[in-house]
Design a protein around this nucleic acid. Sequence first.
DNA 1: TCCAAAAATTAGGTAAGCCTAAATATTAAG
DNA 2: CTTAATATTTAGGCTTACCTAATTTTTGGA
Lengths: 234, 234
Amino acid sequence: MKSESIGNYLKAIYQIQERQNDQPVSTTRLAAQLGVASASVTGMLKRLSAGEPKLVDYEPYYGATLTEAGRKSALELIRHHRLIESYLNQALGYPWDAVHAEAERLEHVISEEMEERLAAALGHPATDPHGDPIPDREGHFEKRDDPCLADLADGQRAEIRRVVAQEPELLRYLAGLGLTPSVQFELVSSAPFNGPVTLRVLGAQPSERVIGREIAEKILVAPLHSTITEPSHE
Amino acid sequence: MKSESIGNYLKAIYQIQERQNDQPVSTTRLAAQLGVASASVTGMLKRLSAGEPKLVDYEPYYGATLTEAGRKSALELIRHHRLIESYLNQALGYPWDAVHAEAERLEHVISEEMEERLAAALGHPATDPHGDPIPDREGHFEKRDDPCLADLADGQRAEIRRVVAQEPELLRYLAGLGLTPSVQFELVSSAPFNGPVTLRVLGAQPSERVIGREIAEKILVAPLHSTITEPSHE
DNA sequence: TCCAAAAATTAGGTAAGCCTAAATATTAAG
DNA sequence: CTTAATATTTAGGCTTACCTAATTTTTGGA
């Protein structure tokens, strides 16, 4: 990687593109994600699209997309990040809300050797503590399109697969509610008008949880086959 | 730490001062250690002695010494470095010749939390894989003044305490000879005119080793009480 | 279609850290 | 004690990665 800054741009472009079906990323969006001024982004995009190797395709006033080389670099950083998060959590006992910040700095400086050793020590895990998939060394990973908790029908059972968030406060809140990957639950009800979502955590006492819609959309799940249909009251 | 570069200057000044009884460090010496031009060093020394907090005392044409604040920062980095080396070696199975390079980058980015967790995971070790002492969080550590292997008298037995080197080739060479910290040996002879040093590794088969004087001076030892006096031939 | 708001770019600046070349200080040797 | 060699600093430049302010382009509504 040319520099830490360049890596951060590539990661940001990758992540934004991922959320918007590979559409070009706007200057403003990137600036917001990176916390820098738009003018700085314009400058960097020019550099990235001019340099050798070309890391992004950039069309002024239109947007930026990663080239294959840029995608490769972004995924390598993401692999580093998620392996480090996993390692900090599993080997060093970090709580899941603290791993992101540490990984954010470490991801830029670890060697290929360290990457390999971390992966090996963890048994080559497929996901990090938040359920985010860890790309392999070639940048491949299973692309899932899990529905979010808010998409479930009332009475449906599901397992938490992934929590799309890194804010420590939110993560601590969810951990406090027992809503972490691999936990199973049954959706009780989704209030209308984007109201709160009520669910029952299987095997927890007490089991009922009520969370806001916004948060429910950040929890990705895998519906379970054995759906128990509750008698509907109306 | 203000920046990675500043950290490297502080570490370098500390290490040079250590080797020359806290005497002021010259621009040229620092430049050589850091691999930068002398003019760059002059510029940085000005910054370091002007900034708040003041990290070095700098007298143009005379030299630089660390202030108490500079020493603190340098020792924190050194603590990071040695803890990381130890961890890489013990927990991740790195060979001792590979830990330095990785630690050199990681030392600048780990948090206080990670420092603590590494130390705890290792049981708060006193030395790193090369036998270098690890300062505690306050920057305190036992200052020893171990003699080097070349200082021993013929027939004297000793234990290797520390190997003052980070070049991978040299470290691999020594590991190949079985000359690593805590290994015990008996000095057979020190050839005159700075000639090679011959020794017998206790409990090794074959046990005889012959190393150059220069290398022998990088191996610090602790003489053992039970000295066996060989019959002197002349 | 025209025009104001929003988005993006250009222009001009800053700080960190490096560089080379030129100037100056110090030191050591005759 | 002078001078040549060596050490150090100053002067002037470069790149990266930011910034703010001004300008230009695009877009969406009346």
